[in-house]
Design a protein around this nucleic acid. Structure first.
Lengths: 225, 225
DNA sequence: GACGCAGATGACACAATCGTCATCTTGCAG
DNA sequence: CTGCAAGATGACGATTGTGTCATCTGCGTC
């Protein structure tokens, strides 16, 4: 994890640098806003620690400026300003967390870990979907069951995605036709049946518990437990 | 935004409920761990506010339990326990933020907004990619330029994705062959050239500034500014 | 300015995907 | 138990996607 520490006081820098490194961060430091801007725009940091009291610029302005130029890494603000107003302002203007000095090192570390963890978790959640032993990866457009990759056609993947997003709930033919196939009007067709059939051939292979259930006269359900 | 407030003291509940509603949250409340578990597992909340001092269960245990059962919404801990140890423990065991009582309403609101905003931003970032006026949507597998949707084949999409993820940097043929086509050994082929050609026909259409540049003898670059 | 080669382009063939249809199977009502 | 209708299955043809090859173009060198 790459971390940018923006802090002008050498004592605090020294106080933080080693423990942060011990905690597994690759730490780089900037002692004023100008340097921080340069570093942050160039390198990709996983998290930033910003002291508000900088010699050349207000820390809040620095953060606003970074956000403007597309830096979206989480920012933890470190500040001697303890008032509610200051805290609220910091949190609203692009800071993701706010810690007042004096602070406990352990708490700083815990909060940093959290910022990073939250971001990873959110990405993970947005790009993957799991239903029982079924797993969809939307970035790679790959599905797997029990760890084994399924060789799905594009359409099959979309169909399975829809089923997974509605796992445990009934899905009718007309829902599928309009949502997956984008057919407003629904002519006499059995595309859905055929695709479900093909999908079953790949997902519910012999020896596995069948996940795609038929509800006669209604539609289909994907088992979710 | 749906918010679950887990708090046993009626005064604090009352104190918070209206302001939270005013801030735009649909608030539901639980006065002990059991009720909170039920509600949280059933409904999808965008954020949880949990008081640690519950009558039937320690709040930390509740959070651990929720995480276990797959609830991944961000949690803000509210607590009278002010020690560093308590705060660190709360933050490490599944809490995403920790506010000690007494607290300022404005700060609670600011921190809540932050939790939600962060999560949305991270999802957004993970599922979309923008390079100049080019935009890729990985969930829908759609690319657009200047708002206009491009009709790309699967392979073309993957190629464009690779170019975008390396925008501004040189991409050689052999990089593309191994990363996009998965070819370890690289026979004499011009697939890359052909696909770049086809991609250009859709991305760099007439009247637009060409984004896919050729570096003779080296490879290609996607312009990023 | 001519030449040579990297890259662009156009045409083709093969492969994968997708929707339709005809037929078979099976759950269920009577 | 029987018959029917919903759904499953198998096969086919149209369409689209993808890689190869032959040829053309134009950049950079001499």
């Amino acid at each position: 994890m790459r971390l940018l520490l923006v802090e002008d006081e050498p004592e605090i820098q020294d106080f933080l640098k080693q423990p942060l490194a011990d905690a597994g961060y690759e730490v780089e430091t900037a002692k004023d806003g100008r340097i921080a801007s340069q570093l942050a725009s160039a390198g990709k940091y996983d998290v930033l620690v910003v002291d508000l009291g900088l010699p050349d610029q207000d820390g809040i302005d620095l953060i606003l400026q970074l956000r403007q130029s597309g830096v979206s890494s989480p920012v933890l603000i470190l500040s001697a300003r303890r008032s509610v107003d200051d805290r609220v302002k910091g949190l609203e203007q692009g800071g993701d967390d706010y810690l007042t000095k004096p602070f406990a090192l352990a708490e700083l570390l815990a909060r940093l870990r959290n910022l990073v963890r939250r971001k990873l978790a959110a990405s993970e959640e947005a790009t993957r979907l799991r239903v029982l032993d079924l797993e969809l990866d939307f970035i790679r457009r790959r599905a797997s069951r029990g760890g084994e990759v399924l060789n799905l056609s594009p359409q099959e993947f979309v169909l399975l995605e829809y089923l997974c997003r509605h796992a445990g709930r009934v899905v009718t033919r007309s829902m599928l036709l309009s949502e997956v196939w984008g057919m407003r009007i629904q002519p006499d067709t059995n595309v859905v049946d055929v695709h479900i059939y093909r999908l079953r051939g790949k997902v519910d292979t012999e020896g596995r518990e069948p996940l795609i259930k038929t509800l006669r006269g209604i539609g289909y359900v994907l088992k979710d437990r």
